[in-house]
Amino acid sequence: MSIPNTQSDAPLDEAESASGNPVRRARARRRSKQRRRMANVAGLLLALVLTGATYSVFAPAQAAEDDNESAAEAAGRQLYEHSCITCHGSNLQGVEGRGPSLIGVGEAAVYFQVHTGRMPLTRQSSQGLDKPAVFSDEEIDQLMAYVQANGGGPTLPSGDLRDGDLAAGGELFRLNCASCHNFVGEGGALSSGKWAPSLRDANDRTIYAAMLSGPENMPVFGDNQLTPEQKRSIINYVQTVAEQADPGGAGVGRIGPVAEGLVIWVVGISALMFGIFWMGSKA
């Protein structure tokens, strides 16, 4: 159970002021401190609500684990035994050489992997491919419930996941995410045929789940590293930038110099060659 840990953010505030680094940009610092304080309060409330909510879901489930699970879990178990058991084992323990253990990955990982179509895998490869989901949203919920109930792990929040500070999200994105996913979430290449996927088609929950669970090669960003509020800020930034227009004309993929160089040669120089050719030719 990771939820109570969320509150460990609270004492950080005092600790941080105790460490007493005199910062010259006082204004911004003060603002961010306020933000953090508010975040802590919000986080605390959220954690309380979540704990309560999860407990109410969990308590009966755990009590009845052996004989009668909830309907959703039962349906999830069926789906699991039909589609997942070959690689992840009958008790989520994983199968050597086929699939990892799902104990402790939580519903976030299930949501990310199944919703983006990465799971079930079509074949063993260095990286699961992003494709249309095999299961319906309802089935995904059932799978999530089953894995959460039997393996435990981080859970996904509900509600508005873009409810965060846009500019702060941008800073966090550039510090933590842009190195792999590019400035604007276009994605990029990783070593030996792996890649960081584009965030263009990712929905809010997918991004949240990815940060929380660290699928495949992506590092995990637990709630003590990036608070839920910070995660929301990042999602807000990613989605805002993805949805905003390009005020300077065609975006050419927003990938910068490579596309621009292509344009100047393919469009610019070609057009001018055509032009001077025409000038040189006789009427």
């Binding site: 995990v220 637990g222 003590n224 590293q225």
Partner: peptide, 8 residues
């Protein structure tokens, strides 16, 4: 305790 295993 702040970071999960496999994090940066």
């Amino acid at each position: 305790g702040d970071q999960e295993p496999g994090s940066l």
